[in-house]
Lab assay of single mutants.
Amino acid sequence: NNDALSPAIRRLLAEHNLDASAIKGTGVGGRLTREDVEKHLAKA
């Protein structure tokens, strides 16, 4: 659900052409954090 993404996370996802649903969020309520996105990028 993109409504739960902060603007910074949306921008980071867009810059790397990532789909938020492909990344498991570890923030409050399962929200994506910058660390989640960076860890996903490091794996790729």
Rank of each mutant, 00 (worst) to 15 (best):
N1I: 13
V37T: 01
A42D: 08
K43F: 13
T26I: 03
L12M: 10
A42Q: 12
A44D: 10
L41G: 01
L5H: 06
H16G: 03
N2G: 12
G27A: 04
R10F: 04
H16F: 07
H16D: 01
S6Q: 06
V37G: 00
I9K: 02
E38I: 15
G25K: 05
G29M: 10
P7N: 10
L32N: 00
N17E: 07
V37Y: 02
N2L: 13
N1D: 14
N17L: 06
D19L: 13
L32V: 10
A8D: 15
R34A: 09
G27K: 02
K43N: 13
I23H: 00
S21P: 03
A22L: 14
D36N: 03
L41Q: 02
A22K: 13
N17K: 10
I9Q: 03
K43V: 10
A14I: 08
G25P: 08
D36H: 01
A4N: 14
E38P: 00
A14R: 15
S6R: 04
E35H: 10
D3G: 11
A14M: 09
G27N: 02
A4R: 14
N1F: 04
T26M: 04
D36L: 01
A44T: 14
L12R: 06
L32E: 00
R31I: 13
L41E: 01
G29F: 06
V37E: 00
V28G: 07
N1C: 07
E35A: 12
A8Y: 14
R10Y: 05
K43P: 06
N17G: 15
R34K: 13
G27T: 02
L5V: 11
S6C: 05
E15T: 12
A44Q: 14
L18Y: 03
R11E: 14
R10E: 10
A20Y: 07
N17H: 10
D19E: 11
A14S: 12
S21N: 11
I9A: 04
D36M: 02
D19G: 04
D36V: 01
L41D: 02
G27S: 03
D3L: 07
P7S: 09
A8L: 11
A14E: 15
N17D: 09
A8S: 12
G27M: 02
H16L: 07
A20I: 12
N17R: 08
S6M: 06
G30V: 01
D36K: 00
D19H: 09
D3Q: 12
T33G: 01
A22W: 11
A20T: 06
K24N: 09
K43R: 12
D3M: 07
